[in-house]
Simulated scan of single mutants.
Amino acid sequence: MTADQQASTLSDKISATVEAYISHLTSGTADDLADLFAEGATVEDPIGAPVRSTRDELVEFYGIITGMESRNATLKWTRIAGDTAVFEFTLVTGNSEMKFEITPIDIMVFDENGKIASMRAVWESSDLKQL
Rank of each mutant, 00 (worst) to 15 (best):
L128R: 09
N113W: 02
F110A: 08
P50Y: 12
L128P: 03
V109N: 13
G114W: 03
K129H: 09
L10D: 08
S126E: 12
G82K: 07
M98I: 11
S125F: 13
G94N: 02
R71P: 00
Y62M: 10
V86W: 07
R52A: 06
S96R: 03
F89S: 04
V122P: 02
M98S: 13
E57W: 06
G40W: 12
S23A: 11
V109Q: 14
S23Y: 07
P104R: 01
R120H: 02
E19K: 14
D35R: 03
T42Y: 03
T84F: 01
A20L: 09
F87E: 06
S70L: 08
Q5A: 13
F89L: 13
I107V: 15
W123P: 05
W77I: 11
Q130E: 15
P104Q: 02
S23E: 15
T9A: 09
R55D: 06
D4R: 04
V43E: 03
E69R: 00
S11K: 14
V43Y: 10
Y62H: 14
F37V: 07
I116V: 14
T103K: 07
T78W: 03
N95Q: 00
V92T: 12
G82H: 12
D31I: 14
E39A: 03
N95V: 05
T17D: 11
K99P: 01
W123H: 08
D111S: 08
R71M: 04
